[in-house]
Amino acid sequence: MAIRERWAAVLAGLSLVLLPAALPGGTPGGPSLLPPAQAEQPQGQAKPVLRIGAIPDQKPEKLNRLYPLVAAELERQLGVQVTYVPVVDYTAAVTAFRTGDLDLVWFGGLTGVQARLQKPGAQVLAQRDIDVAFHSIFIANTGSGLKQIRDVKGLTELKGKRFTFGSESSTSGRLMPQYFLAKGGVKLADFAGGAPGFSGSHDTTIALVQSGAYDAGVVNEQVWRTSLRDGRANRAKVFAIWRTPGYPDYHWIGQPNLDQRFGKGFSRKLQGAIISWRTTNPQQKQILTLFGAQQFSKSTAANYKQIELVGRQIGKIR
C-alpha cells in the first residue's frame, strides 16, 4: 500500500513534468506568444514573414475569425507569408509594434498616434470609410433612471452614476468620450466611487452595463450595432442615450522598415492591396463585412492631429 502510494506520487510528479511534452502542437506557443521563429527574424533572410495584429477591441472569437481571413487575403495578393498574432490588450499592441514584433497593425485612433510617436517613421496606410467620422454611443442600463439626452450638455446627467469606459487606451471607448464628457462639464471624479471603471473592451462594457454593474458606459457605434443585431445586447436592459459627433478613428499602420525587409515599394503594394478590397469579391466581401465597412481608403497621419491633441489634453499622450 505504502509503496503504491509512493509510486503514485512519483508518477504524478513525472506526468506533470511531462505534460507539456504530451500536448498537441509541439510548439506550446500560446495564442499571444510569438511563434519562436518570429522572435528574432534576421534581416535579409530568404523569406520574411509579415506579422499582422490588431487591438483587441472586440470579442476574441470575432478577431480570430476576421484576421486570419485578412492574413490569407494579403498573402494571396502580396505573395509573402502573412501570420496573425493576437495580443491581449491595447497597450501590448502598441508595445509589440514599437519593439518590432508586429509589422502591420489595425490600431485605434489613440493607439495609432501612440504607436507612431513611439516608432518614428511608421506609416499610416489606410482607414475604413466609416473611420473618417466615427461615433461613440453612450449607453445606460434601463434601471439606472437615465434618459436619452440631446446634446453634450446633457452628459451632466451622468454625474453620480457608476460609469465605465472600455479599454484605457480606446479612442471610441475612452478618449473621445472623455473629451466630450469634459466638454459637457463632467470630470472623471464626478462618477460614483470617484472614478470610472475600465471594462477592457466594448463587448464587456455592454455586458457590464446590461448586468447593472455600471449604470452607464460608452462603446463604439459599430460594436453597439452589431450587438443589437445579434441579440447580445438586450434592448429591455440597455439602451443608447447619446451619439457623439464624428471623429477619425481606426487605421492600419505599417512598420517604417517594410520596404527594406520585403523589397522596394512593398508598403505601397500593401496599401494598394488593402484599398483594393471590394464587396464584389466574395473573400474580400467577408472581410469588409466583418470590418463593418464598404471599403478602405488611403489615409495619412494628418488625419489624426485632432486625436493627438485630445490625447495630449487628457494625458494619454505625453
Binding site: G29, G30, P31, S32, L33, P56, K59, P60, E61, V88, S199, G200, S201, D203, T204, A207
Partner: peptide, 14 residues
C-alpha cells in the same frame, strides 16, 4: 501568454 490569456478573453466575452 498561456492559459491565463484564454481565460481572460473567455471571461471578457462571457
Amino acid at each position: 501568454g498561456g492559459l491565463g490569456t484564454e481565460l481572460k478573453l473567455c471571461l471578457q466575452s462571457l
